[in-house]
Amino acid sequence: MITRDIAAFLERARDCALDFGPATAKAAFLVAPDGFARAEQSAGDNRYMADATAFDAGCAMAEHHELHRALSSCVPTVCFPGDPDAPDALFPNNVFATVPGRLIVGRMRHPVRQREAARSDIRGWFRDVLGYAETDLSQQPHPCELTGALVIDRARGLGFCGLSERCDEAGARLMHEAFGLRATLLFDLAPGEYHSNVVLAVLAGRAALVCADGFDDPAAAEAIASLYAPHVLRLSAAQKAAFAGNAITLSAGTVWMSAAAEAALAPADRAVLVEAGFVPRSVALRAIEAAGGSLRCCVAELF
């Protein structure tokens, strides 16, 4: 099922058991921020991106190295070199995603990001080293920026897809099919929002971080929250701006976010996470966040 009908989606989703697949990834990969700079094409529909003067390539590289070290303490994590001609390449989760045994390559909206999908080294690593098959969506015309646009509950096989310039309805359907999901809810993001994973995170199928003002229709946000109640952290606009929604679980008991995101959490917010069985861990990513994304955007998952 892929639908905009909230009631129909909820009826289907509530019957989905936690047996679709592993709730968290077995490994992760990153792409280093070589050539880190403001990508003007991406800035056209990413209001979270800073002015060019705020970009510090050296600091971003140091932060990224620390992110790699930190995540490696949780799951095996590899890092590919960046491409100076692809300044957004440090956010590979928009371009590459996996299901068990298969790599999915997305179709990026902007030409500057479409270069990333053509990387033969990343594709070759999955094909020749890991033996993964490939589903290539990069050459069709509909934008579908993978786990930037589509937040997935891997345990239940549910998708939550926010539509914007970065993902249209046809692209959402292609992703729904590529991931083999049981049900996907389509909703419009609020004007000015570019990716769902800034306003929504589902944590190992057990909890959710939701910022209702990132949805064009708050009813969609509340419907998603109802699936994970009582373990729901409702984010304020200020917390969203600090990238608190751009979080990820890479193991059963840990939620990762940037240091700025964690600092934006109130004691009551932390209590929600603890009650759901999560310990927050964070990495300082101030320089990286100038590029309009945060920790979850940096992490491509291997299932």
Rank of each mutant, 00 (worst) to 15 (best):
T24F: 14
L185H: 10
I248R: 04
G180W: 06
A25P: 07
G101E: 11
A52V: 08
C297A: 06
A261I: 07
A212L: 08
V279S: 14
R154A: 13
H195L: 08
G180H: 12
C297F: 03
A7Y: 11
A172Q: 11
M61F: 11
V210G: 01
C16T: 06
C298F: 10
P84K: 00
H65L: 13
A50G: 13
E40P: 02
M49T: 01
V279T: 15
A212F: 00
R296W: 04
R47T: 08
A25Y: 05
S196W: 09
H176Q: 12
T98H: 10
V210Q: 02
L103A: 04
L250R: 09
H110T: 12
D216E: 14
S258G: 15
E301A: 11
V274R: 14
E165M: 10
R154M: 02
R115E: 03
L250D: 10
H65Y: 13
R107V: 10
A223F: 07
A32N: 07
P33Q: 05
A149R: 05
A43V: 01
T184M: 01
L158E: 11
A155E: 11
M175F: 08
E11L: 13
A52C: 09
R102C: 09
A43L: 03
L265V: 06
D213T: 11
E63Q: 15
A241D: 15
G157W: 04
E134Q: 11
A259C: 13
L250G: 13
C167Q: 10
F160S: 00
A117L: 05
A287N: 10
T249H: 14
I152K: 09
L71E: 01
R156P: 01
R119H: 13
A155H: 12
L67Q: 04
D269L: 06
L265P: 11
A300V: 09
E193M: 12
S196M: 06
C297S: 12
A237Q: 14
A290L: 01
A28N: 11
P81A: 10
C161I: 03
L163W: 05
N94V: 11
G214V: 00
G82T: 00
D51T: 13
V31N: 03
A276L: 07
A284G: 13
A261G: 15
V129R: 14
M49F: 04
V283P: 13
L158G: 08
L18H: 14
P87G: 05
I224H: 00
F55T: 01
A117S: 15
L103C: 01
A133D: 15
V151S: 09
R206K: 14
A133T: 15
V210R: 00
A57R: 03
P267I: 07
A284Q: 14
A86G: 08
C74P: 07
P76R: 00
S42N: 15
R173N: 14
E11C: 10
E66P: 08
S164I: 08
F55C: 02
R14I: 06
A291L: 08
V202E: 11
D34G: 01
E193T: 04
L227P: 11
G293K: 02
P143T: 04
G82M: 05
P280V: 01
A117E: 06
V75C: 04
A220W: 03
N46V: 00
T98A: 07
G171C: 08
A7T: 14
A204V: 00
S73E: 15
A8D: 15
A207V: 06
T24W: 07
V210K: 01
A178Y: 04
